[in-house]
Amino acid sequence: MPVVSMTVNGKPASADVEARTLLVQFIREQLGLTGTHVGCDTSQCGACVVHVDGRAVKSCTMLAAQAEGADIVTIEGLAKDGELHPVQAAFREHHGLQCGFCTPGMIMTAVDMIRRKPDLDEETVRDELEGNICRCTGYHNIVKAILAASREMR
């Protein structure tokens, strides 16, 4: 079995994996970082979004081997020195989550969205969330939280 090595949340991570191992399986099963979720099998729901070299990626759609040498950040690595990331804080402040299952993917997507588009408006946020499905919130408060975080991060 091939050995894959990458940096995950600032720490080196390495394991022997079957070639077919998905990045999300590597993160959840090999590293035990279960904050990244799997909500579908067709790359639609976005519960598995992590950052690969700073970009939001659906980790169910990438082989672990493709992430060789990459810098990965998962939801567990987003808060720094005990301080919530502004997007995490905004989701809490604006009740942008209910059951919490889609939330890690939503937050990771939102962080990347704000990085790419600092001047977000509601329509853009809704359009950008096309790849993240939430069944609980009706997106109302997710959109509100992302807009608030983007204002704060300007």
Binding site: T34, E76, R92, G100, F101, I107
Partner: peptide, 19 residues
């Protein structure tokens, strides 16, 4: 009131069955 349960969910520390 902001939710008590949110901290674990926004930091990836929830414990769902598959976890």
């Amino acid at each position: 009131v902001r939710r008590k349960e949110d901290f674990r969910f926004i930091t990836g520390n929830g414990h769902y069955t598959d976890d």
